[in-house]
Nucleic acid binder design. Structure first.
Lengths: 256, 256
DNA sequence: CGACGTGTTGATCTCTCTCAATTAGAGTGG
DNA sequence: CCACTCTAATTGAGAGAGATCAACACGTCG
């Protein structure tokens, strides 16, 4: 079975169903599939014109670092996300991408982005949609990092990633050997993040991240065991996070 | 003279020159021009499907707030920026937009975004380019807010906005009555931000923002007088900000 | 003239960071 | 099977960057 059916460009955004025509264009732009192991670097931080990818399975993250090695994780990439649109348009890559779990990537031709815009209006609109959706995620993270307390940030992160992962899992047509495909209870997801990742995501120190997380755990709000996150009280977490009702786009709300 | 020549969709991204065909499409999608005064709300935080705008002159900002009124400014919008792509695709607006100075906005038809993708590949590619460019700006701000000290954040903000404003000014074909059009020495720009704005941009308190800014000013690195910012030592500021050489895209470097 | 917005400064307070040490689990090699 | 090593999580203590509280200065504007 062709894994292109899981490609986000192929109409899985919930916006429209894919057609033969678009599928064919995508096929022609696809160069190959790539598999990388957990921890591998997909794009180095200052790579020149890295390829355009689509994430078919697994978790990854985008990051930037300062000269003295402080790292900020810009966002978590889940199956169905696009990788490398920003850099593709503009000289060197501004951020690196690293795998959190084993990944399956669909790699496209160098000029795929332009050809896709040139050849098909639906596909080009989908790209814009995907990029805009990613921007909303960053906006939300910026709100957390800039204005939420440590505890609020943790709660927001848990809820956000939970609903995103649930939705990504629900959308995948097949993904036999990927971490997110393992059958889990409806209030659990696979969780490949270490506390260091969480700290770098939320702009906190490792130690403080640990203490804050611990407090939430002892409060019975969530549980992480064997790389699996279980939300024991999603509502309470949302409330702790001071999440405005509409901070979650409606397409995610069903997963809580 | 038609102000559409200043429209970012019309090839001002430096990526290509505009053609008759694209100009005509844009004309047909343009509904009208809007003028708002400084301080006005352009888009309320939870508006349903707000229109798509292009910022022709003036400064604005995007923001999100928490239920208890803490505010995070997500980014500053300068002439040539697109407003409202994110919200346009997806239910309610996730962020508000407010004017920092008097603005000239070009307002488009409701379904302009889709029609533009449908009718012209160059235009649709330009939109993707613009959205991706904005995402890079947010990435950079997230790095500041998450990992830079207060002093570093201030320095980074001053440098970043300076080069962006300089470039926007250099690109504007005409903008007679807008704040950024006033002739200023090459190391100065118009500066409509209050310290409260800066605090909300960088995720700091007003008081601490003031003290940090004051220290930099006393150090002779910059000066703000009569709503005009002058960078007295851009190199030193970059260095204070721990700005990696490539944190500024090359198209901005000429303005330092 | 008083009200208001903006900037400034000093005095605490506290959240988060840094430093340091310990525990637990997963490999790995002898 | 048992040291040995590495990574990730955990906890305590002390330090510090930044927050909060409180005044005051200055200019604009009704």
């Amino acid at each position: 079975m062709n894994s292109c059916v899981n490609c986000p460009l192929n109409g899985l955004t919930g916006y429209r169903s894919h057609s033969k025509e678009q599928s064919q264009i995508l096929e022609s732009l696809k160069r190959d599939e790539r598999f990388v192991e957990a921890g591998a670097t997909v794009i180095r931080e200052h790579d020149e014109s890295p390829p355009l990818f689509t994430l078919l399975s697994g978790w990854a993250f985008r990051y930037k670092t300062l000269p003295d090695a402080r790292r900020q994780i810009l966002g978590v990439l889940l199956p169905g996300d696009l990788i490398g649109v920003q850099q593709h348009m503009d000289e060197a890559s501004a951020h690196g991408v690293e795998a959190l779990s084993a990944l399956t990537l669909c790699r496209f031709e160098r000029d795929a982005l332009w050809r896709l815009h040139r050849d098909d209006a639906v596909l080009s609109f989908t790209v814009t949609w995907l990029v805009a959706a990613e921007e909303r995620l960053i906006d939300s993270q910026l709100l957390s990092v800039g204005r939420r307390s440590a505890q609020e940030r943790m709660a927001a992160l848990l809820v956000n990633l939970f609903v995103r992962a649930r939705r990504a899992g629900a959308q995948a047509v097949i993904a036999p050997d990927s971490p997110e495909s393992v059958e889990l209870p409806p209030n659990s997801i696979s969780w490949p993040l270490t506390q260091q990742h969480i700290a770098d995501l939320m702009g906190l120190s490792l130690v403080h991240t640990n203490k804050t997380l611990r407090r939430l755990q002892k409060g019975g709000f969530y549980e992480i065991k064997d790389r699996v996150l279980t939300l024991l009280d999603p509502r309470a977490l949302q409330s702790i996070a001071q999440m405005d009702h509409d901070e979650l786009p409606s397409r995610y709300r069903a997963f809580l």
